[in-house]
Every structure is written in structure tokens, then in C-alpha cells.
Amino acid sequence: MTPRRRSALLGISALSLTLGAAGCERQVVGQPEAPAATQAMPVYADKAACAQEWDQAACDAAFQKASAEHEANAPKYATRAECEAAIGAEACQEGRSSGGGSFFMPMMMGMMMGQMMSGRTGYPVYTDRNGAAYSGGARVSDPQPGAKAGTLPRTVMAPVTADGALASRGTTTRGGFGRTSSYRGSAGA
């Protein structure tokens, strides 16, 4: 008969199963990279507000760019609850992936107008549950004392690269795994 006993239980006596749930908070927004500079950017809730200070075509173009950026790169969450926990009550909208799955992301609250060497452009602006404003993964404005939630700042100081583009770091999205587990039950087989 072939020997079946194992030779030794290496390390088993020191078996310490201490890998359990990490006690860290989930990080919602990435830290901005050290920017080359900052640029003051005006913020508009809609095209009409923008058109009071700029010509209509520039506003339309900037909102279009901001919306495209929003669709492509807004932080995404598996559930409305997770999104609202991070962003704020009634601050999230549902989106659909190309594969048909649904997810939630913050609503674009406005557009901030940037000035690049190549011309003007627009970026989406989000506000979190505390009233701070974000764009490109960076906090561009602290909460405004006394303002209602969702109130946009008039102007933000945004980090920009040498050519004037927003120094976007992107955002880290979490919660993209585990939704199926929540209704399938135990993963073991």
C-alpha cells in the first residue's frame, strides 16, 4: 500500500486565520495627483445659466463634453444603496452597461468650464452628501457653509496639467463584485 499519511503538518500548529474582513472604510474617490497648477473654473447647473456668461454654442459644446465624460467615467456602484451611501440620498441615477447589466452612478449636478491651450471645454461636477464638489476624481470644492445640499459652488479651483486640462486621476469604483453572491447564497460547492 502506498503511504498516505502526510510527512508533516508544516506550520499548521501556527495556523492563524486572521485574514477576516478588513476594517477599512471603502474609498469612494481617488486622491488627486499633485497638479501642475490650479485653475479657477466657473460652475453652471445648466446651459441657461452658462449662456448668461458665455455664448450659447460654447455652453452647448462644454455641456456635451461634460456629459460624455460623465457617461464614460462617473464612479459606478452595484446598487442604489451603495451609491447613495457614498454620494447622498436621491443623488444617484441608474445606468446600463453594454452587456445589459445595470449600475448606479451619481447624477451630474453641473458643468465646470475649463480653459485649455486648445480652447474651452467642460467637465462634469458632482456633489456628495456633505455638499463638497468633485470632478475628475478630485475634490474641487469644500462644503459651503449654510448652503443647501446639492447647491453648486459658483467657482472652483481645479487641478490642471501644464496644457490646462483637468488633472484627472480617475476614480476608484468599488462594489462591482458580490451582487450575484447576495442572492445566490454560499459560494461553496
Binding site: 495556523l15 480617475g170 469604483t173 468599488r174 463584485f177
Partner: peptide, 24 residues
């Protein structure tokens, strides 16, 4: 337990809950 076995084989290990895996 699997991580303990990997450690025994000389592989450094870290745990991350699936819900905490991030994408960037």
C-alpha cells in the same frame, strides 16, 4: 486556510473582500 498554504510555499498574501475590490 488557502492563504496559509500559499504562505507556507513562500508566497506573500493579502485578503480583500470581494465587495471591496476596486477598479481604476
Amino acid at each position: 486556510y488557502m492563504a496559509v498554504c500559499a504562505n507556507e510555499a513562500g508566497i506573500p498574501t493579502r485578503f480583500v473582500a470581494q465587495e471591496d475590490i476596486g477598479w481604476r
